[in-house]
């Protein structure tokens, strides 16, 4: 088990290495001169050259890459924002918590709603509930997150005044953004849970459980769900990555001070060190999530052994 985790972690290193190269080259291949972005377009040629020398842009690329890696790995230094001159790693750390809490809570909603509606749809197959569930999921999958967020904000924050509109000043602020972010994933989980439960309900061992005289409720909640939820967990784990993608949009809608809005602001102002750091961070996140999914899969399914 521990060996498996270690092996997977070691296996991540080459991928991360490639990603560092990509994110490093990002700055050097994209249009726009970092010096001009940092110090404005009006500086004269002499100053420009001095600054270029000072910031190390005249060194050969491998040297620059080496310095970038040493700074990052040894000192945990991701450079400074062109725009605010602030330390990128500090800013990222500060904002990471916001995005983390937002995605976790969204996932909580998504699983809560997704799994329960999925189970109801599957066990009451072809009933009015099932149909309503299916129609709502395909609709939910067609609604852009940002619009859904705006509508929630309009109705619950502006018109009814139940929730604050935007920002992150109180715990109540997270409610609308997390629901917005969670609902699309919830729809995916509903569909997936439903088909998974339906599939398991046709299995022979479910019939065995019934033949033992087991209550239908126990048959569903114990025999069926333990099996049906294995693929759901995997899928939900993978959806986590997509949740982070969605967070970029939702954070923008609700002015949530997480990494997503940081990324967009940085892209719009070509703040490359920030973009660089965020690409790296997001990639790392996906890799870790995949690892966690694989591990949790083993806990649920005794047939998987880590070798």
């Amino acid at each position: 088990m521990l060996q498996f985790v270690l092996r997977r972690l070691v296996g991540m290193i080459p991928i991360l290495f490639i990603i560092t190269i990509i994110s490093f080259l990002f700055v050097h291949l994209t249009p726009g001169d970092p010096i001009r972005i940092m110090y404005g377009a009006e500086i004269d040629q002499e100053t420009y050259q001095t600054l270029r020398e000072r910031e190390g842009f005249n060194d050969p690329l491998p040297v620059q890459y080496g310095r970038y890696m040493v700074d990052m790995v040894v000192h945990g230094d991701f450079g400074q924002s062109y725009r605010t001159r602030a330390d990128v790693s500090e800013e990222v750390m500060r904002r990471f918590g916001y995005t983390f809490v937002l995605t976790i809570l969204s996932m909580f909603w998504a699983i809560l709603i997704g799994v329960s509606v999925g189970i109801i749809s599957a066990t009451k197959r072809n009933s009015i509930w099932d149909r309503a569930g299916m129609v709502s999921t395909i609709t939910a999958l067609s609604i852009p997150e940002f619009w859904f967020g705006l509508m929630l904000m309009q109705i619950f924050a502006v018109q009814l005044g139940w929730f604050p509109t935007s920002g992150a000043a109180s715990p109540l602020h997270i409610l609308l953004p997390s629901i917005t972010l969670g609902f699309g994933v919830a729809a995916t989980i509903v569909r997936f849970t439903r088909s998974s439960v339906l599939e398991v309900m046709r299995e022979d061992y479910v019939r065995t459980a019934r033949a033992k005289g087991q209550k239908e409720r126990v048959v569903i909640w114990s025999h069926v769900l333990r099996n049906a939820l294995i693929p759901v967990v995997t899928m939900a784990g993978l959806q986590f990555g997509f949740l982070i993608g969605g967070a970029v949009v939702v954070e923008q809608v609700f002015a949530w001070p997480g990494l997503g809005s940081y990324l967009i602001d940085s892209i719009l102002s070509r703040d490359y060190p920030v973009i660089q750091a965020l690409i790296l961070l997001f990639s790392l996140q996906f890799l870790l999530i995949n690892l966690i999914v694989d591990i949790s899969y083993g806990f649920l399914n005794p047939q998987i052994r880590y070798d």
Binding site: R207, A209, R210, A211, K212, G213, Q214, R226, N227, N301
Partner: peptide, 19 residues
């Protein structure tokens, strides 16, 4: 069921719950 009348099925490979 399972008490007065019980049943054995055709497919032993799938009739037991894998988890």
């Amino acid at each position: 069921r399972g008490n007065d009348i019980s049943m054995i099925f055709q497919e032993p490979m799938t009739s037991l719950n894998p988890v």
